[in-house]
Design a protein around this nucleic acid. Structure first.
Length: 443
RNA sequence: GCGGCCAUAGCUCAGUUGGUUAGAGCACAAGAUUGUGGAUCUUGGGGUCGCGGGUUCAAAUCCCGUUGGCCGCCCCA
């Protein structure tokens, strides 16, 4: 039995789990369609180069990559974004803006499996391309929140941490950091939460020591947690004038648009300004956001941001873009811990109870009709006593039993019994579909 | 890639200082019940004790290795 185990980090989905997964996907799909995002799909296997081009050579050790029989270097997809960028890039010239697309698919990463992180997982991806303004982020973050809220989680359970790599960029330049230093300051900030003061070594190893007041200046900026605090902090900087100050002032206007839009949609309670978030790999170019549970018990539920350079980098036109992904693993763990996993009943509408071999022939003919009419119909494959068959009908949680007994059939009739209240009536077989429709309600 | 804990039936778990043929509950199946129900009772199927090696007269139990799981570090697109 244990001779063949599943590969590490891969899951099997038994029917109950598959039903739950499909339910989650259905909620996500409904939310995306309601926001008029279009569903697309792409290959599971891609040229290895596609991912190296996006993320660099080092990414290969985290990929399910191999050489195919034609000698091509290939990889299972670790994410959807490069495929999306290629697809949109190919036809961007012919596409109406904004481009709003989503996908639900399985992704593969060769990493050590842990709580909330597996080697094969499903992701909901949504992206909005062709709009550079913060109105795009309003759409995306609104969709993100509605996708998570559709599962039953509320603003008491999760929130969105919102930050902005552009703001950091303009701010750091305004207070004197060079363009070359900025990425390493951002790298430091990303480490600050976990490593504390040690995080500054990341910057200092390349650019020399930072005075304590410089450290404090950065650290305190990561603590900004509201638009008001941000405006207050930046007031003296923007007042000083210059290119960086002007860029900062324009960026503050974007912030007002974004937060105002989300507020107007009623999502204000979900948003937490948190400039300590800059997100790992550095292709994000503007707003970045992550969804977390409020208890802090789980990994990030979802993450995303703006990536204006990526479509061009992957060979397409210069197209502004932003997007996010929600994984299935963390949110499922969270729903489980909060008892929000739905009990999905998978039951037939009708269970046929069959008297014997002669009655079976009649029943089989009707079963075909009922199934063709869209009913979900089950029956015992082997002859058995009536008591046993009713038991099976119960265990199947069927709503209606149709009884094929010799006496009734001799009269050209069958009996129907609603299992819930045990009411029984005899129906002429030539009125079968009509009677079933009345008893079960029209499909 | 590194470290800690764990692995007995489909599931949850017992299994004494190493000692005959490894158990329970749930689940599954058959019967009680040959035309009427999720109950009850009886019975049954199901195990390479993760896998491989070692110690021993004797290993689920002790030792080594290995695979897998969980947890943490690195990473997290």
């Amino acid at each position: 039995m244990a001779q063949f185990q599943t590969l590490p980090g891969f899951r099997e989905f038994y029917p109950e789990e598959t039903a739950r997964r499909n339910h989650l996907f259905r909620l996500w799909r409904q939310a995306a369609v309601a926001a008029n995002f279009l569903e697309y799909d792409g290959p599971v296997l891609e040229p290895l180069e596609l991912y190296k081009a996006k993320s660099g050579e080092e990414i290969e050790q985290q990929l399910f990559s191999f050489e195919d029989k034609g000698g091509r270097a290939v990889s299972l997809r670790p994410e959807m974004t490069p495929t999306l960028c290629r697809m949109v890039g190919e036809r961007a010239g012919a596409m109406r803006r904004p481009i709003k697309w989503f996908n639900i698919g399985e992704h593969y990463r060769y990493e050590r499996a842990q709580k909330g992180r597996l080697r094969a997982f499903f992701q909901f991806n949504a992206d909005l391309l062709g709009e550079a303004g913060p109105e795009a982020e309003v759409e995306l973050i609104a969709l993100l929140i509605s996708c998570i809220a559709a599962t039953g989680l509320t603003e008491r359970d999760f929130f969105i941490r919102l930050s902005d790599r552009n703001l950091w960029f303009f701010y750091l330049q305004a207070i004197g950091y060079t363009e070359a230093q900025v990425p390493d300051v951002l790298g430091t900030i990303d480490r600050l939460e976990k490593q504390g003061d040690d995080a500054f070594k990341f910057f200092e190893e390349k650019h020399g020591p930072l005075a304590p007041e410089k450290r404090a200046e950065i650290a305190s900026f990561t603590k900004i947690n509201s638009l008001a605090a941000l405006e207050e902090r930046l007031a003296p900087v923007t007042a000083a004038g210059g290119a960086a100050a002007e860029a900062l002032a324009a960026r503050l206007a974007d912030w007002r648009t974004l937060l105002g839009g989300l507020e107007a949609m009623g999502y204000g309670a979900f948003i937490q300004v948190d400039l300590g978030v800059v997100r790992g790999l550095a292709y994000y170019t503007g707003f970045v956001f992550e969804a977390f549970d409020r208890s802090g018990e789980f990994r990030a539920i979802a993450g995303g941001g703006r990536y204006n350079n990526l479509v061009k980098k992957l060979g397409g036109p210069d197209l502004p873009a932003a997007g996010f992904a929600i994984g299935d693993v963390v949110i499922t763990e969270m729903l489980k811990s909060k008892n929000l996993l739905p009990e999905i009943v998978s039951a037939p509408d009708i269970f046929c109870i069959i008297g014997g071999p002669a009655e079976r022939k009649v029943a089989l003919a009707d079963i075909r009709e009922l199934r063709a009419a869209g009913y979900r119909v089950e029956y015992p494959l082997k002859d058995a006593g009536f008591g046993k068959q009713f038991k099976q009908a119960d265990q199947n949680r069927a709503r209606l039993a149709i009884i094929y007994g010799g006496d009734e059939l001799a009269r050209g009739a069958v009996k129907m019994k609603l299992l819930a209240d045990a009411t029984e009536r005899e129906i002429r077989r030539d009125h079968l579909l009509q009677a079933v429709g009345e008893l079960l309600g029209k499909e």
